[in-house]
Simulated scan of single mutants.
Amino acid sequence: MKLVIIEPLGVAKEKLLDLATATLGNQVEIIYYDTRVTDTVELIKRGKDADIIAVSNLPLNSEVIEGCPNLKMLAVAFTGVDHIAVDTCKAKGITICNCAGYSNAAVSDLVFGMIITLYRNMLSCNEVVRQSGTKDGLIGFELEGKKFGIIGTGAIGLRTANIAKAFGCEVYAYSRTVKENTGLIYTDLDTLLQTCDIISLHVPLNAHTKHLINAQKLALMKPNAILINTARGPVVDSQALADALNSHQIAGAGIDVFEMEPPVPSDHPLLHSINTIVTPHVAFATKEALEKRAVIVFNNILNYLNGSPTNII
């Protein structure tokens, strides 16, 4: 069996290959690429002889999948798989396994980093001190007592909810599946948007969630509310959000994900909206999370080889 690691996985090459060898032994021949390419022809060249491909968030379209005739398994070093031609994989009987759970702590950390940065005017405070200024006009807000809305109560959503409760927030939730005994107040989407001071998105991208947060939904939010998106960019209508921010319809936003992977075009509306923090899709990217992810990738491959695949999409 030939395993192609088609792009870097965020762990030093030597450490990654040592981990792969320790987990998989001599069951596979490993080919490792330490550069990231997006050209379809080059991706096919890299993967055409592979039985298994390990990939992070590099888009693998139908043409790439069709161009890899030996492919039997995709080990996706990511939680979401909207960058993979899933239907083509299913049609060809290719098993897809993801790495659910590796970034739960990392993503939740960034959510609260963004919230506190917005609530306590951290960016402006940093600038004003450097310009010999004072706290005038920079009085912030506390998390305690705020109504905190979680949209999507999977593992990351629930972890975020638990942290919010530790800050003393009253936590509301909207999700396709209601989780029992969580201490969350489940409600419909419109009620959550109308009620909450902070709204954090934790849903996958699919036909039902694209532009889930659009102009009509933003109009329901409080003028003092902030929106945090560490899920997927297209879950939010970016232009509608920028318009809501610039017209003071809502108070602020923290955005880690866009319609495309960074670099984000300079004319993107959320790069020019007020009281907006933007980060380059880094919520998952901590040293600890990337190492957890590599462990899951190779365990997924091992379980597949042993006939008991895990984390199947």
Rank of each mutant, 00 (worst) to 15 (best):
I163S: 03
I151G: 06
M122G: 00
T160Y: 04
T79V: 15
R46Q: 08
T95K: 13
M122Y: 11
H83I: 08
C125Q: 11
R159N: 12
I139Y: 13
G101C: 03
K90V: 05
E29S: 14
L60Q: 11
N98A: 12
S103E: 14
E144L: 02
D82L: 00
V81P: 00
A106S: 15
V129H: 03
F78C: 13
K45F: 01
G137E: 05
I96V: 07
C99A: 15
G113M: 14
F141E: 12
I156G: 05
R46M: 04
S108F: 00
D51N: 14
I30E: 04
G145Q: 06
I151N: 10
F148M: 09
A161T: 03
Y32H: 11
K135P: 00
M73E: 10
R120S: 11
T40M: 01
L123Y: 09
G140D: 10
T79S: 13
I115Q: 08
R159T: 03
C68E: 10
V129P: 01
N126Q: 10
Q27R: 15
L110R: 13
L123P: 04
I163W: 01
G80T: 09
D109Y: 08
D49S: 10
C68R: 07
T134F: 11
F148P: 05
I115G: 09
L43T: 05
D34Q: 13
I30H: 01
A105T: 12
K72V: 02
T134A: 01
N26I: 00
V81E: 05
G152N: 11
A106R: 10
